[in-house]
C-alpha cells in the first residue's frame, strides 16, 4: 500500500516535463472525442441552468423542452422564493454547509498536518504499529461507521447538534497519510537539525521551518477534506433531524422527496432545481479559481 502510494507521489513530484513535441495524427478525432465527452459531462449542468429559469409548470411542460430556455424567465422569482419558502430555510442550509465544510475541513487538516509531521519526523515508540493501523483504516468503509457513530453520539446527547456533523468530519486518515509521505520528502532532517542547533524548540522548528515547506500538501488536504465534508450526506442524514441544522445536500434531498410525495403545497420542483444550482456555484467557482493548487495537489496524492 505504502509503496504504491509513494510511487505515485514521487512520480508526480518530479518536475513537470517540458511540453515535448507530441506526435499524433488523429488530432481531429481526438478533439471530436473530447467534445463528445464535454457534452456528456456538462449535460446535467446545462439542464440545471435552463431549469432554474422556469417555474414548476414550465419544468413540466415548457414549450421549448427541458433543454432550452422558454420565453418566460423565472430565475429571479425562483431565487426570491428561496428566500421566502419555509422562512428562507434554504439559506440557513447553505450557511450550515459552509460551517460544516469549513470547520470540519480546517480541523481535519490541522490534525492531519500535525500527525503527518509527527509520523514523518520522529521515531517514537509504537510509531510503526500506529501507522499500520492508520493505513488499514483507510480501507474501512466510512458508512460502516455511521450507525455506531449515531448510537455513540446519542449516548453523549450530541444528536441534533452541529457537533454531530463536525466532530466525525475531523477524521481524515488519508490526509495524515498524504502529509506523512509529503513531509518525509519535503522536509529534510538536516534543516530541522540546523534549526535545533540554533536553539529553536520543537514547536518553533515546526512552525517556522517545517510548516512553510508543507504548504502544497496542506492546500491539497484542505481541499479534499472540505469537499468531502461538503459532499457528506449519509452522516448528516442520520444524525440530524432538526431541519434548522441540515446541510444543503440533505435539505434539497428532503424537498425533492416531499415534492415527489405530491401534496399540492409541497411541489417545489423549481426550488429544488434553483437551489441545486445555487449550491454548486461556490464549489465550482473555487475549483476554477484554485486550479493551480488542486491540479498540482491531486497529483501529489495520486488518489483520494
Amino acid at each position: 500500500m505504502t509503496t504504491l502510494l509513494e510511487r505515485g507521489a514521487t512520480a508526480a513530484t518530479t518536475p513537470r516535463r517540458q511540453a515535448a513535441k507530441r506526435t499524433g495524427g488523429r488530432r481531429v478525432g481526438s478533439h471530436l472525442f473530447l467534445i463528445a465527452l464535454v457534452l456528456y459531462f456538462v449535460l446535467p449542468l446545462w439542464f440545471l441552468i435552463v431549469g432554474s429559469t422556469k417555474d414548476t409548470a414550465g419544468l413540466f411542460s415548457g414549450a421549448a423542452g427541458p433543454l432550452f430556455f422558454d420565453d418566460e424567465f423565472h430565475l429571479f422569482d425562483n431565487i426570491a422564493q428561496l428566500f421566502t419558502q419555509d422562512g428562507g430555510i434554504y439559506w440557513r442550509w447553505l450557511g450550515n454547509s459552509f460551517l460544516y465544510a469549513l470547520s470540519g475541513g480546517v480541523g481535519a487538516t490541522v490534525l492531519a498536518v500535525l500527525a503527518g509531521y509527527g509520523f514523518a519526523k520522529y521515531r517514537f515508540r509504537g510509531r510503526d504499529a500506529s501507522f499500520a493501523l492508520l493505513l488499514g483504516s483507510v480501507m474501512v468503509p466510512v458508512t460502516a461507521l455511521v450507525i455506531p457513530t449515531f448510537v455513540l453520539l446519542s449516548n453523549f446527547g450530541l444528536l441534533n447538534t452541529i457537533w454531530a456533523v463536525i466532530l466525525p468530519s475531523l477524521l481524515s486518515p488519508f490526509g495524515v497519510y498524504l502529509m506523512r509521505v509529503y513531509a518525509s520528502e519535503a522536509v529534510a532532517d538536516e534543516i530541522l537539525d540546523a534549526a535545533r542547533v540554533d536553539g529553536a524548540g520543537e514547536l518553533r522548528t515546526f512552525f517556522t521551518v517545517a510548516l512553510p515547506l508543507l504548504k502544497p500538501a496542506i492546500v491539497t488536504v484542505l481541499l479534499l477534506s472540505i469537499v468531502g465534508t461538503w459532499n457528506n450526506y449519509f452522516l448528516p442524514l442520520a444524525v440530524l433531524s432538526n431541519t434548522q441544522l441540515l446541510p444543503v445536500t440533505v435539505g434539497l434531498g428532503n424537498w425533492q422527496a416531499s415534492s415527489t410525495a405530491g401534496a399540492a403545497g409541497e411541489q417545489v420542483w423549481n426550488l429544488v432545481v434553483t437551489g441545486s444550482l445555487v449550491s454548486i456555484v461556490p464549489l465550482i467557482l473555487s475549483f476554477l479559481f484554485l486550479q493551480r493548487y488542486w491540479q498540482g495537489g491531486l497529483s501529489l496524492g495520486s488518489l483520494k
Binding site: L34, F41, P44, F47, N231, T249, V272, S276, L283, Q291
Partner: peptide, 24 residues
C-alpha cells in the same frame, strides 16, 4: 477546457448529481 469540464462533476455533491440525473 475539456479537462476542466470533465472534472466539474467532482465539484458537485453526489446528492445534487443524483438529483440532476433524476430530473433527466
Amino acid at each position: 477546457f475539456s479537462r476542466l469540464m470533465i472534472f466539474v462533476p467532482y465539484a458537485i455533491p453526489v446528492v445534487i448529481g443524483a438529483l440532476m440525473w433524476g430530473f433527466l
